[in-house]
């Protein structure tokens, strides 16, 4: 049985489009459906575009949290 409480973290500080989304997508491919991924981003346009693109791919955005001037956490539930 998969562990639904497990949260995988992906640090994408320093990355810009499309690498932010490519790396998020590749990481999600490693996870089971229903598992949670937390992505750390420091590029503002990616904070809008990565969640929008993920939603388009059927994943669920659990939350976007600003952690600093240029730092965000995006929580994703894999479809």
């Amino acid at each position: 049985m998969q562990d639904m409480s497990r949260i995988t973290e992906l640090d994408l500080r320093g990355e810009v489009c499309p690498y932010t989304f490519v790396k998020t997508k590749l990481k999600l491919e490693e996870l089971e459906s229903g598992e949670e991924l937390k992505v750390i981003l420091d590029h503002a346009p990616a904070v809008e575009n990565v969640p929008r693109s993920l939603k388009n791919e059927g994943h669920k955005i659990l939350g976007i949290e600003q952690k600093g001037d240029n730092l965000w956490n995006v929580r994703i539930r894999k479809a």
Partner: peptide, 8 residues
């Protein structure tokens, strides 16, 4: 960069 994006 665009080519990488086009694989998505």
């Amino acid at each position: 960069r665009m080519s990488v994006g086009l694989t998505l």
